[in-house]
């Protein structure tokens, strides 16, 4: 049984690229993600850089997971709408997206989810703002935070779309 280590961390969905970078820094230091739960990441001791880790916002889809497993990837788990995978680095580079269109597609899925959550929180917040027994301000504050996240995602989409005007 390999030595294990647990980290607790909350990462907003619009920082999924930073989350992935952090998980790969851990893997580079010999701590490969083994299982994942809400705010909780479990790592196992491995050789440094033994694995490459990838995460993606994607609906749980057995066909998709089986497809990735056929390419040598290992499915680690799912938290809310994020799926986590890893693959031994001896099999070569491991990416989920190899062109601009599919990177934009991924960001747009995140943007869509954030838009729905923002709208719901604004609606609930405004609906409850005249009701002294409910904390409508909380939903409005949360919706404002989500709007900020949505802005971050849109900035990333715009940067990629600009690049796509001359490349693919």
């Amino acid at each position: 049984m390999a030595e294990m280590r647990t980290e607790r961390k909350w990462i907003w969905i619009w920082n999924i690229d930073k989350e992935e970078k952090w998980l790969n820094e851990m893997a580079a230091n010999g701590w490969a993600l083994k299982s994942v739960h809400f705010i909780t990441y479990h790592f196992e001791k491995t050789e440094p850089s033994q694995y490459i880790v990838r995460c993606e916002m994607h609906d749980y889809d057995e066909n998709y997971i089986a497809f990735l497993e056929d390419t040598g990837a290992e499915y680690i788990g799912k938290v809310t709408k994020s799926l986590y995978f890893r693959r031994a680095s001896e099999l070569g580079t491991f990416d989920l997206f190899s062109d601009i269109d599919s990177k934009i597609g991924h960001l747009k899925r995140i943007a869509k989810l954030l838009s729905v959550l923002t709208f719901m929180n604004f609606a609930v917040g405004i609906g409850n703002s005249f009701n002294a027994t409910h904390f409508g301000w909380f939903n409005i504050a949360f919706a404002s935070l989500l709007t900020y996240g949505l802005g971050r995602i849109h900035a990333k989409i715009e940067a990629l779309e600009e690049e796509r005007e001359i490349h693919e």
Partner: peptide, 28 residues
């Protein structure tokens, strides 16, 4: 071809230049 076969064939045809990622391939 199956999925992984496509990835290998494309890499071979392009002499290693084009490496399709699995998520991109699945969507396509």
């Amino acid at each position: 071809q199956h999925g992984y076969g496509i990835m290998q064939e494309v890499e071979r045809l392009s002499s290693g230049r084009v490496r399709l990622a699995a998520g991109t391939l699945y969507g396509a």
